[in-house]
């Protein structure tokens, strides 16, 4: 990785952490497009919750359980999620990346 790419990735990750960890606190809490349509057209009751998925999810609804501070519980959720997505996509890319041809190795 060149120095230029390193700078780009660090800057991109930095912007993402600010969005997920700071700005997310001020995100609109209105229902999103699909939730709004479901409410308006009367089919929101058909949504079900998978109890196993709910119990297994460590940070349900983007709020870290047990954290009292309103800002921190969302901020931590954003930072953790951003880092997990970064790490997992990086890992996936690293596992899948094109291998050099034996002749070039």
């Amino acid at each position: 990785m060149t120095k230029q790419t390193k700078v780009f990735v660090i800057a991109g990750l930095g912007v993402s952490l600010v969005m997920g960890g700071v700005i997310s606190f001020w995100a609109s809490s209105h229902p999103d497009g699909l939730e709004w349509v479901a409410g308006e057209k009367g089919f929101e009751d058909k949504a079900t919750e998978n109890e196993i998925q709910k119990d297994a999810a460590p940070i349900p609804d983007y709020e870290v359980p047990g954290v009292q501070n309103d800002f921190l519980k969302v901020s931590l959720a954003g930072v953790i999620g951003t880092l997990i997505c970064f790490g997992l996509a990086l890992l996936l890319g690293w596992v899948l990346k094109r291998r050099k041809h034996p002749a070039a190795a």
């Binding site: 990785m1 990735v9 991109g12 952490l17 969005m19 997920g20 983007y62 997505c85």
Partner: peptide
């Protein structure tokens, strides 16, 4: 060289999706 770009794109999309 694309591997770190996958990571940063995923991070950005996750974070930006939080911003309703």
């Amino acid at each position: 060289h694309q591997v770190p770009l996958l990571g940063v794109t995923a991070a950005f999309i996750f974070a930006a999706q939080m911003l309703n």
